[in-house]
Design a binder for these strands. Structure first.
Lengths: 220, 220
DNA sequence: GTCTATATTATGATAGAC
DNA sequence: GTCTATCATAATATAGAC
């Protein structure tokens, strides 16, 4: 029944085609996803329905099935797109900072900002709020890359003597993820409308770097 | 429309009545909540419907309205009950251990075990997965008490010289909550079927105590 | 406090004309 | 690729008999 995501797979794995019809098609797909995200932002992750998307797109519900096989396929496409954009944000942040702790700090900052600005997508990525929805393997791919990104930053920090050798470990990566998810969960659940850097939780996220230093003290 | 939770309020604020009819009524309410929790455990927090509850209870859907005003009222009762039971578990854990860090450790352990064993309820408590559901003020009450419990344990630890004075602060409480929620979110989302203490995330929760020590080093 | 009957509304999805 | 028409299903909730 969950037939996958032919449409969104097209959107992600195929390079942008020059063909005008295909381009128009991809635009529509993006528009559908944008509307879906709007709905989730307004009324919650589980409030997404194809009927409402059709309503806002100014189209009849059956038309949407030309772009997505099912409602779950839309969720999957949202998951995939979110995962990808989030990853790219992290990557940009890491590249724009010095290797090691500064890169790590920049990544935390970028991650926090993005997730808070796209909280329903973040919920989709980091918890399982939709009955029956499980991301496909393809959608999970960037997640693996993201872990690698963090692992690299940790290894860099160790190499630069900013963290002790224990930080180049799976454990440290899990610590990182726990802290990111925890502060974001708290912020989204309890202070959804506060901007990044304010409130009780998001200001603590950058301090995770201090925490890592405390946990894995550098040799010197 | 969301008229509150007359039924569940009865269940929590009234001391157990000796009257047989009332007792039977409370039993039914508890049974409804148990069934609701089962459904959420099997199919997700958002899979809860009154029809399914009625089906399993062997009763027609309208009958349920004698006990709860609406579906959201059931969610609220689940929230309230979960909050209360979780709190009592923490309290017991704290009382069964030496004051300060041991109590803190015991609380983390108890919290983790309970949340993992009641993950849909935990999701209800710590995120907002149900469109339209906001816990009533009364339901949030134990949450305040829980924060106080943690604050007390931190203060004890400071008093016993196990943590530096900075640990007797709101910040430390938020750190605690972030770490608890984070590790549980990760465990529930990624390793829902692994028992407590196994997997990548739950073994890290007890180490939060070390983290606190690193963050707020005692004077000596 | 339980039931039947029903109102109301909504959903996901398919068939087939254009 | 859009539409109309429709299927099939399900939900919350209320009215009123017993």
């Amino acid at each position: 029944m969950v037939s996958g995501m032919s449409a969104s797979a097209e959107a992600s794995s195929t390079p942008p085609p020059t063909d005008r019809r295909s381009r128009r098609r991809l635009e529509t797909i993006e528009e559908i996803l944008d509307i879906a995200q709007d709905i989730m932002t307004e009324d919650g992750v589980n409030a997404l329905t194809l009927s409402e998307v059709a309503r806002r797109l100014g189209v009849q519900p059956p038309s949407l099935y030309k772009y997505f096989d099912s409602l779950l396929a839309v969720y999957d496409a949202l998951f995939e797109r979110g995962q990808r954009i989030h990853y790219e944000a992290l990557q940009r942040a890491a590249q724009g900072a010095a290797p090691g702790l500064p890169a790590l700090h920049a990544m935390l900052d970028a991650s926090g900002r993005w997730c808070l600005a796209n909280s329903p997508i973040a919920q989709l990525l980091f918890s399982r709020p939709v009955p029956g929805f499980e991301p496909t393997e393809a959608s999970l791919e960037p997640s693996v890359a993201m872990v690698q990104l963090q692992r690299d930053a940790l290894a860099d920090a160790v190499e630069h003597g900013q963290l002790g050798p224990g930080a180049a470990s799976d454990e440290a990566v899990w610590f990182l993820s726990i802290f990111i998810i925890g502060s974001l969960s708290q912020a989204i659940a309890n202070e959804p409308d506060l901007p990044w850097g304010t409130g009780r939780f998001t200001p603590l996220l950058p301090r995770l770097v201090d925490l890592l230093v405390a946990l894995y003290p550098p040799a010197g």
